[in-house]
C-alpha cells in the first residue's frame, strides 16, 4: 500500500514534468494557474491547515507581494525574480503587523477580521496607495523574468519556473512538517489550551504561521506579476481568498498532497467544463456541497503518524 502511494506520486510527477510536451499552450497555461494557486494554497495551508487559524484574507498577502515586485521592477528596474525574497519579506512582515493585534481571536472572529484585511488592502490599491499602485488600472509593463540569460516568456517556460517553485515548496514544507516547528502548529490546531499548557508559546507560533504563510503568498505574487506583466487590484479580490480557503479545506487541511489535488480540481475542473458556460459554476457549487456533506475532513485528511523511526516500527512488530 505504501509502495502504491509512492508509485502514484512518482507517476503524477513524471506526467506533470512532461506535460508541456504534449499539451497546447492554453492547457499549459491552465497548469500554470494551478501551480500558482497550489503555491498560494500551500502557504495558506500552514496557517489554516497546520495551525488551524481561519484566514480568509490570503489574497491580501498575495497582493502585497505582487505589488512589491511590480513597483520594484517598474520603478527601480530591479529584475523581477530578484524581487522574490523581498516581496516575500514584505508580505510576511505585513502579515505580522496585521495579525499581531488580532491573532488571539478564535475561529470565526479571526475569519471576519481577515476578510476585512483583504478588503482594506484591495481598496487601498484601488485608491492608488502612496501614488504608487496605479489605482484601479494597476501597474503595467512588468518585465519578463530572466533566468540565467533565458528570458521566460512562453507558457511552457513559465510552467517549469512555477512548478519548480511548487516542487521546492513541497520539499521544504515536508521538512517543516516533520519538525518541532511543524508539530507546534499542529498542537495549536488541535488544542490551544493544552499546547500552551505543555510549554508551547502559542502566541509566537500563531504569528510565525501567519508570517511564513504570507511570505509564501508574497513570493507567489512575484511569480504572478512576472507571468501577467500587468497587475490590478481585481486579481486580488475576496473571491481569490475564498477559493484558496476552499482548496485547503477541500484537499484536507494539513495534507500537502491533498491541497495540491484540490488545487487541480478547484482551478482545473471549471476550465475543463468551459463549454457548459455559466452552468459550470452551478455544478462546481454542487460538488462543494456534496463534498462537505459526505467528506468534511477533505479529500486526503491530515493524519498523525508521520514519525516512523525504525526502532518504533520494529518494537511494534
Amino acid at each position: 500500500m505504501k509502495h502504491g502511494k509512492l508509485f502514484a506520486v512518482v507517476l503524477a510527477a513524471a506526467l506533470l514534468a512532461t506535460a508541456p510536451l504534449f499539451l497546447n499552450a492554453y492547457q499549459v497555461d491552465v497548469l500554470n494557474s494551478i501551480g500558482l494557486y497550489g503555491l498560494l494554497a500551500l502557504g495558506l495551508n500552514l496557517i489554516l491547515g497546520e495551525a488551524g487559524l481561519f484566514n480568509m484574507g490570503h489574497a491580501a498577502f498575495y497582493a502585497v507581494g505582487a505589488y512589491t515586485a511590480a513597483i520594484l521592477n517598474t520603478r527601480y528596474q530591479i529584475p523581477i525574480l530578484w524581487t522574490l525574497p523581498l516581496s516575500g519579506l514584505v508580505a510576511g512582515v505585513f502579515a505580522l503587523v496585521v495579525a499581531r493585534p488580532v491573532v488571539h481571536l478564535r475561529g470565526d472572529y479571526l475569519l471576519i477580521v481577515t476578510i476585512g484585511v483583504g478588503e482594506i488592502v484591495r481598496i487601498a490599491l484601488v485608491n492608488d496607495l502612496f501614488g504608487m499602485t496605479g489605482g484601479a488600472n494597476g501597474i503595467f509593463g512588468i518585465s519578463r523574468p530572466n533566468l540565467f540569460g533565458i528570458v521566460i516568456r512562453r507558457p511552457q517556460e513559465f510552467f517549469y519556473l512555477i512548478w519548480g517553485c511548487v516542487a521546492l515548496t513541497i520539499f521544504l514544507f515536508l521538512r517543516l512538517k516533520q519538525s518541532r516547528f511543524g508539530r507546534a502548529l499542529n498542537y495549536l490546531r488541535e488544542d490551544e489550551v493544552a499546547a500552551e499548557g505543555s510549554g508551547i508559546n502559542t502566541a509566537y507560533y500563531k504569528l510565525a504561521a501567519f508570517g511564513l504563510g504570507a511570505a509564501w503568498a508574497g513570493m507567489a505574487g512575484t511569480l504572478f506579476a512576472a507571468k501577467m506583466t500587468i497587475i490590478s487590484p481585481e486579481s486580488f479580490n475576496f473571491w481569490e481568498s475564498v477559493v484558496l480557503f476552499m482548496i485547503v479545506i477541500l484537499g484536507g487541511a494539513g495534507n500537502i498532497v491533498g491541497v495540491l489535488l484540490a488545487a487541480f480540481l478547484v482551478i482545473g475542473l471549471p476550465e475543463l467544463f468551459r463549454e457548459f458556460a455559466s452552468a459550470r459554476m452551478l455544478v462546481f457549487g454542487l460538488v462543494m456541497v456534496v463534498m462537505m456533506v459526505f467528506r468534511p475532513q477533505g479529500l486526503l485528511p491530515a493524519g498523525g503518524g508521520r514519525f516512523l523511526p525504525a526502532t518504533l516500527v520494529r518494537g511494534r512488530g
Binding site: R175, R180, F181, R183, D191, V193, A194, S198, G199, L212
Partner: peptide
C-alpha cells in the same frame, strides 16, 4: 482530558519535549 486528538500518542508526548528544544524554522528547512 485535553489531548491532541488527531495526532499520534508519540506526537502528543513530543509536545512536552518542545520547550527544551531549540530548532526553529531554519533548522527544520
Amino acid at each position: 482530558i485535553r489531548l491532541f486528538q488527531r495526532l499520534t500518542v508519540l506526537e502528543n508526548v513530543l509536545a512536552g519535549c518542545h520547550y527544551r528544544m531549540r530548532g526553529g524554522i531554519l533548522a527544520a528547512l
